[in-house]
Structures are given as C-alpha cells and as structure tokens.
C-alpha cells in the first residue's frame, strides 16, 4: 500500500479515479441507459427493455409537435449562441481594461452563473409576469404604454421566444465571458504593443490580431454554449413550458414532458437523443478546428 502511494504513476491514477468514477456514474451510465431506452419500448412502469430498433425515432418524426420543437430548438440555440459569443467578447474585452469598480462589474456579471438557474429563472418569471411585470409597470409609469397596452412577454410567440433567448443568454454569458477573458489575457502584451506601434486601428486590431489569436478558446466557449442551448430545458420549463401553443417548445422540454410527465421513457429518450449525432459531429469539428488553430 505504502509503495503504491509513493509511486507517482499509481498515485496519479488514484487521485484521478474519483473524477473518472464520478463522470462514469453521473454522465456515462445515464447516457448509455438513455441510448438503450431510445431503442426500446420501455415506459415509466415497465422495466423490461425490449429492442424496437428505430421505431421511436420514426414515430415521433412524423408529429407536428416534434417538428415544431426541432425548428424551435435550432432557432433558440443558434440565436442565443450568436448573442452569447458577441456579447461575451465585448464584455471580456471591457473587463480586460482597468477601471474603477471593476471587481463589482465582474461580480455582477458572474452572478447569473453562480445563482441556481431555477431560482434565477423564477425571478424572471415574475419580471415577465402578465399581472405584475416590473418591466410593463415601469413602461407604464414612464407613460410609454397604457394600462391596456402591457406586453405579454410570454404570451405572444415572438416575444416569448425573445424572452427565453434573452434569459438563456443572461445565464450563459458569464461562462463565455470568463472563458474568453482567459483567452484574451493569454495573448502576450508585446503583440498588442507591436500592433499599436504599427498604427493598427481598433477594428483591424480586433479582427486581424485579437480574434484570430483567441479563436481556439472561442471555439471551446462556442461549443459549451451550443451544447447547453441544444440540451437544456430549465429556462423554457420554468417560463413557458413550451407555450404559447408550442412556439417555444424545444426537444429537451418535449422529451421531459413525454418521458417523465407522460411516462413514455423510450420516446422521451428518443426525442432527447435525436440531436446527439449532430451535436457530436459539431463537437468533433469544433475541437479539430480549435486544435488546428492553436497558437504555439
């Protein structure tokens, strides 16, 4: 035992084992189970896994609800991620500069990420509430809208989609900002100094020096955000449950309603895993590009 603990090789294995075990148990096993479920006829009540091939996938594909959810998933994820990347880059660049109260700004930006997401979203639910919306109240107090002109943030399809995207961006932005900030701080100062001496404008500096240099880390931030946006349902579950009339229903929330609420675990798993091949391909592509773009 003592010899094992003194051996750097075995000690390394021992130290990393809890993390590996954790990932296998918490991520790996449920994932394998979800794949098994998706190709079976399992329900919440039946525990026998009977192989049914692609039947669950084919069955849901033809439904309007699934098609709407698939479309919404892409709209939600892509718009949210573009916003996250643009705003994250702006914020990271701003935080790179020194200014008074920088610690407070950093703290405020990190708060949405630190706070439990369900709690934060419930706060937004009240902000967007049809009866007590503080936004509508303020607009009315400023005379910008009348008492009967309140915006139904979660009741009109484009406003509802806009709201869930906004809140998702609010939640993911801190992570992207921190990742991008790490990338920006890793750029050697002499490169910036050389660009300044050469008289490069802000935009030229940004697009020809800064962004190319942080491209690998941007791709990682983009990948994280994209996977989150494609697979998470908390914001939608708390705010709209897919409404109004399924215009914000996404695959993740539909999978929950079908698999857990309605008890068809197999179909729920099939819906949840539907985009897995695409996400896997995107992840591989992103990581390969990021590796190629690494600056050595």
């Amino acid at each position: 035992m003592a010899a094992l603990l003194d051996s750097p090789r075995w000690l390394g294995v021992l130290m990393i084992a809890p993390a590996v075990l954790y990932i296998v148990l918490v991520v790996g096993l449920p994932f394998v189970l979800a794949i098994l479920y998706a190709f079976s006829g399992v329900t919440m009540g039946s525990r026998t896994i009977e192989f049914v091939g692609f039947k669950n996938f084919i069955s849901v594909l033809e439904t309007t609800k699934f098609q709407t959810s698939l479309r919404n998933t892409f709209v939600f994820a892509l718009i949210a991620q573009v916003l996250v990347m643009v705003l994250g880059t702006v914020l990271a660049m701003a935080l790179l500069k020194d200014f008074r109260g920088k610690w407070l700004v950093r703290l405020l930006i990190l708060l949405p990420w630190v706070a439990p997401i369900s709690l934060g979203t419930i706060g937004w639910l009240w902000i967007l509430d049809s009866t007590y919306s503080v936004i509508n109240w303020t607009l009315e107090a400023l005379g910008l809208i009348g008492a009967d002109g309140w915006f139904m943030w979660l009741g009109v399809p484009y406003l509802a989609m806009g709201s869930v995207i906004t809140i998702h961006v609010w939640r993911i932005l801190p992570l992207a900002t921190v990742i991008l900030l790490a990338g920006l701080t890793s750029i050697p100062h002499d490169i910036h100094d050389a660009a300044q001496v050469d008289g490069a404008s802000f935009w030229r500096h940004l697009f020809q020096i800064t962004l190319p240099l942080i491209r690998p880390i941007m791709l990682v931030a983009g990948l994280f955000g994209l996977v989150f946006a494609f697979t998470d349902m908390i914001v939608i579950f708390v705010l709209t449950r897919g409404g109004p009339y399924d215009t914000t229903q996404v695959l993740a929330s539909l999978a929950f309603f079908t698999g857990i609420q309605a008890g068809d675990l197999a179909e729920g798993a099939a819906i949840a895993l539907f985009l897995f091949p695409l996400l896997l391909a995107v992840a591989v592509a992103f990581l390969r590009v990021a590796r190629r773009a690494e600056v050595t």
Binding site: L125, T131, M152, W153, G155, P244
Partner: peptide, 13 residues
Amino acid sequence: PEVFTWDASSNNR
C-alpha cells in the same frame, strides 16, 4: 392574450 402566458397559479393571482 394574457391567458396564453399563464402557469397554474396565474389565474389565482
């Protein structure tokens, strides 16, 4: 259109 936004406790409120 308020009724399109509701959750289970909205009508109470």
